[in-house]
């Protein structure tokens, strides 16, 4: 449904995204995950035809965004970071206006506005001025705006940012319900968001894709990397050297009186480490094995000095 090839964008001499390649299939829900400033919004602005890239190509439903902008834009519902709502309009009038901009006839526009309000639970505020609504409601009006006319593709840029926990929960529920009806690309800098809604995640950092996989297999690959913390009384330096030779150990780092060992997810490796340490007579007093969870991996993937794990992926 969406094909992005070699997408690069620089603002002046500042490179925002660099050679992005990805595909989103029809009906998929894809999370676009990355810290602030990673280039998520920039990518979405280009895909929606809001902005032209410096180079590269975007196709939506077979149409090139720059050769056939009208065809592409009619297939996309877009919720930017700031909901594009007019404070001086009524919710209903605003949604009708959006439908009319999408070229719908007056009666159709009315029906579509109603449908969008029903999906986003806005019917009870339809006669209210948008300027008088709370931030959570405004965000929902923004989502309703993207839904007007049931576009094939939904592009949601940080749909829960700045909302309170209850509103975040409601927004996630709404997105969950849209699954299956649209192809959805959702950007976020918080992990639980993609865990809650996405089939597949694309992790982006400093304008480049650092990982791309389904949630399960990414999770598997992530738990495939664990950490063993050892506390020993003697021979620290010696062990840093010798432990690296143990099968399954990726790296060893000294941390005060302990050692941090990155390992694959295999109990044999942990056993081998324990055995090795005891044999070396290093005075083992503590051994703790932990799996990295998604959050740790995310931090590793997106932090500036990428760890072993990052390179591995």
């Amino acid at each position: 449904m969406i094909e992005v090839r070699g997408l690069t964008k620089s603002y002046g001499d500042r490179l925002a995204i660099q050679d992005l390649n990805f595909t989103v299939n029809k009906g998929e829900v894809v999370g676009f995950l990355g810290p602030n400033g990673a280039g998520k919004s920039t990518t979405m602005k280009i895909v929606t035809g809001y902005m032209a890239p410096s180079s590269g190509e975007v196709r939506v439903g077979g149409f090139d965004v720059f050769e056939n902008p009208i065809e592409v834009k009619s297939q996309i519902g877009y919720l930017p970071e700031t909901p594009p709502v007019y404070m001086d309009m009524l919710v209903e009038d605003y949604l009708i206006y959006v439908a009319r901009l999408r070229g719908k006839s007056k009666p159709d526009a009315k029906t579509m506005a109603q449908a969008a309000m029903e999906k986003t639970n806005l019917t009870e505020v339809q006669k209210r001025l948008i300027g008088n609504l709370s931030k959570g409601f405004r965000q929902r009006v923004g989502l309703a705006q993207a839904l007007v006319g049931d576009p094939e593709v939904l592009i949601l840029d940080e749909p829960t940012v700045g909302l309170d926990p209850k509103q975040v929960h409601e927004m996630r529920d709404l997105i969950q319900r849209l699954k299956g009806q649209h192809t959805i690309v959702l950007s976020t800098h918080i992990l639980p968001e993609v865990q809650a809604s996405c089939d597949r995640i694309i992790i982006i950092n400093r304008g480049q894709i650092v990982a791309e996989d389904s949630l399960e297999s990414l999770g598997k690959r992530m738990s495939a990397s664990g950490q063993v913390t050892l506390k020993i009384r003697r021979k620290h330096e010696e062990l840093v050297q010798s432990l690296s030779g143990v099968k399954g150990v990726m790296s060893v780092r000294r941390d005060g009186s302990g050692l941090d060992v990155s390992v694959d997810h295999n109990e044999d490796t942990i056993e081998a480490i324990a055995e090795h340490t005891v044999k070396a007579g290093a005075g083992l007093v503590e051994l703790k094995a932990t799996d990295l969870d998604l959050e740790d991996i995310f931090i590793r993937l997106t932090s500036s000095e990428r760890s072993e794990v990052g390179r591995e992926l």
């Binding site: 035809g49 902008p69 009208i70 065809e71 930017p80 594009p84 007019y86 901009l101």
Partner: peptide, 14 residues
Amino acid sequence: KMRTYDLLLTAPIT
């Protein structure tokens, strides 16, 4: 200023 420009620029209009 109010970012509603985004709506106009991403709507299927010229």
